[in-house]
Amino acid sequence: MIDFIQYAFDGFLIGLLYAMIALAFIVIYRSSRILNLAQGEVVVFGGFIVFQFATIWNMPLWLALPLSFICVIILGFFIERGIFRHLIGESLFTNVMVTIGLMIFLRGIMLMVWGPAPKLFPNIVSGVPVNIGPFIFSRAILYGGLLSFVIFFVFYLALEKTRWGLTMTAVAEDPVCAQSLGISVKRSVAYAWALGFVLSTIAALIFLSGQSIGFLASSIGLVALPVALLAGMESIWGAPLAGIIIGVGEALCKAYLDDYTNGTMSEAFPFIIMLIVLLIRPQGLFGWKIIERV
């Protein structure tokens, strides 16, 4: 029983991490209608920037972290200016494809600058695990989980309750209409990417703290996709719920089913959920159902 609860709690906390990456994805989607397939690369890229400041240039963390965040925000604006500004009003197909290009591009840059071998990521929080009663938790993941609730709340308020957030939502619903009402689509897309990069970097800090960082870590972005889809691509509060469902399910599969399936069930679980969601309820748990008119 203790084991079961431990597995479930681990899954719960990992799920919140997935949810945070999914949130980065959702923020970009609901403010610019761009499905960012490069999400995993964005997370690792943020991680590498922190690595560059903290380890290679040997800065203390209180200096390295703010600098990295400034850096990724600039990068987000840069991506909007360089790529997505030219594609406003283009078809969905083009927008999906360009994120594939971005994915290859970012990975190439990571490989060129930091090389293919995994590197040791700095300890953001101490690596000593926390004991709560009979349970043991990784400190980074536990604090990350607590932090993530704050982040979800802030993003919920910012995107659903402020004028600024609502203009971004309007852009997602219909860019042409939003533009004609005087909302700057360009600015909305730029903010979306900056926020997406910031969230991804926070996720990278939690995910990679004290671990090794390499370009292959981007596969976490692949797990965040099913989470975002289950949540509904527009829903902020859906993300933690979906993250928890997928995280706990995956952890329990890993604990109890992997022995019978050569350790593949836990890997397959999020994608099986994704296929089921796509077939039964494509808009996810709390997404907007969009009715198409000719």
Binding site: I83, L102, I104, F105
Partner: peptide, 24 residues
């Protein structure tokens, strides 16, 4: 030594983005 091989990704990613923007 590895920079040139990995550079291929940058070239391909860049080429895809440029094509989508300038020559869809």
């Amino acid at each position: 030594g590895t920079a040139w091989f990995t550079g291929m990704n940058v070239v391909l990613g860049g080429v895809i983005i440029l094509f989508l923007i300038f020559e869809p």
